[in-house]
Design a protein around this nucleic acid. Sequence first.
DNA 1: ATATATAGGTATAACGTTAAACCTATAAAA
DNA 2: TTTTATAGGTTTAACGTTATACCTATATAT
Lengths: 341, 341
Amino acid sequence: MTLKDIAAEAGVSTMTVSNVINGKHNRVSKSTVEKINKIITKNNYVPNQSARSLTAKSSKIIALIVPVIEKTATTHGTTLFENPYVGSMLGEIERTLRENGYYPMIRSVAKQTDILTLFHTWNVDGAIFLYPSFDEIIDSLIEQISLPMVFIDSSSQNPNVMNIGCDNEKGMFLSTRYLITHGHRNIAFIADYKNNPLLEQRFLGYKRALEESKIAFNSSFVIENSPTYEGGIKAGTTIASSKIPITGAVTTADICAIGMIEGARLGGMRIPADLSIVGFDDILPCLYTSPKLTTVSQNLHKKASLAANLLIERLTTKKVKQNKILVDVNMIERQSVIDIE
Amino acid sequence: MTLKDIAAEAGVSTMTVSNVINGKHNRVSKSTVEKINKIITKNNYVPNQSARSLTAKSSKIIALIVPVIEKTATTHGTTLFENPYVGSMLGEIERTLRENGYYPMIRSVAKQTDILTLFHTWNVDGAIFLYPSFDEIIDSLIEQISLPMVFIDSSSQNPNVMNIGCDNEKGMFLSTRYLITHGHRNIAFIADYKNNPLLEQRFLGYKRALEESKIAFNSSFVIENSPTYEGGIKAGTTIASSKIPITGAVTTADICAIGMIEGARLGGMRIPADLSIVGFDDILPCLYTSPKLTTVSQNLHKKASLAANLLIERLTTKKVKQNKILVDVNMIERQSVIDIE
DNA sequence: ATATATAGGTATAACGTTAAACCTATAAAA
DNA sequence: TTTTATAGGTTTAACGTTATACCTATATAT
């Protein structure tokens, strides 16, 4: 079933059918509109988007891009689509795009050229980058391509890129202060934050909370592991085996906190009796651990639909009100923090 | 950059360039091939897939379809892309398709017509249905469309559909027998298995294990809740508040087992001291619970790549060796089962 | 010497849609 | 009455690619 078939059955030209489909009703009489619509629904006709892409210079395809992470630095799972942080956003993005007539194509990329090739191959309308620290891969790419792109958790300053993130400094401030108000003073910060702007901001929030309570910053309380499950396990065992009297830890990802519970237990500590742990993100598995993970929520569902909506706004109205959106953060109290006197 | 541009630069016709790109080297001299390839790489030219779709009657697009689940029966999360069972397969499918030159388009669908519309809109080459019990939505659809489709965990008998599943009966047999060998005799089966072929098979495995050990089947040990997180919570509280002396439970999904840990604890039971629980699937969050979940693994990564490969095989070579593949199952011993004497 | 095959191309039309320009009959304005 | 708008169309070309048929010069077989 093509436009031609519909046109033939209706006894009109293809352009008339095309105009009806595209809602240009001032060009077609009411009776013709009705007649054509009847034939369209009877035959379940839908326009061929490939043909449309060809003339329209717009494909309605949005690339959802996730980096290929080297095996050694996996975030626990073979690909990032398995990562609950990514997963929690993926569904909302799909929904938002679908409801607005866009089509999400998912893709793991290892190299810049992978991205360029995908964009050119499909004449992609826009892209959402679904994981932090794309910056290295992307920085020089941005100059080569001028598609609307939304970066989730990036810190790119490039005007072609829209950013969605959360208030990282505040989040970690809340997290650290939460431990302090529960009596903790020896608080570990878990993340290899150096050279990572997002994590550096969180580090600043950690320090501000300490300062606010006149707790001296102790660099040996900073444990530089990647904010992954494996990184968390290492951090947990490190703390358990060290002589440093740490009683609480703030992490920069729930999955890392979850790994940390595991690692600390392997080292003989009880959670939270011997070590209080606070996560970051509020992914679903926070509810699966025992104790349930106290964490900083950044409302991932909202973040995801904001990302998709921002992209759509940019695609439909050329001007964009804002180029950067931060979702708010707030503490979610659960069971992984204990009072100490 | 189009074929025309490349052709102009090389001083040949577009067909010659097209033949080079498509590897029809017997039609082009070696020197011309080299010259054209140089120009192609210099300009980072890639063919426009929309244009190809139009002539080729093949789009290279594979739809990855997940059902929209009503809010009341959610599997814990707003959409199924957030479900770890789906997530663990999604990444592997993406990888397999990508490596074979296909493009995965993700889509939640609520109605049959959604699927048909998507297929027609993009002239989709094939589809993978990523969640069990699509059957109702799909059954009549199958007659309307003759695209290669792979159903994961479906039991469709239709020859147009290829099925990937696991040995459900054996899986639940292993699971139940595992509890029996650990001394359990009052074993609950958690699932609203009636009218669900997949769950019915698992129920048969449960019964076979009981019979093998001469344990009488007791229908009050069957707790009919959906195999979801919420269903698991209900099942857990049900067991905790009942007078039935259940000591172990087999579930048909890890996410249900995880909910059950929660529900049973809410009811005052200790896991596994008062209640041993066995999961099914072996998703990542099995490692996040305390105790870690003993479960039946069905090797989801392998299942996913098998699904994608089966589809690709069908698309490239018209004949398919097999229409149904079962991945093997095996027990994964962790900590959620305790011996009773 | 003639017929035939082959290597290495080219020209044309088609895929399904839409933008742009054009046509024509009637209605409204001058 | 003549001019001008407008409503309701149609025609043509183009988007980027490929299938098909065709061309021509040389090499090979008879």
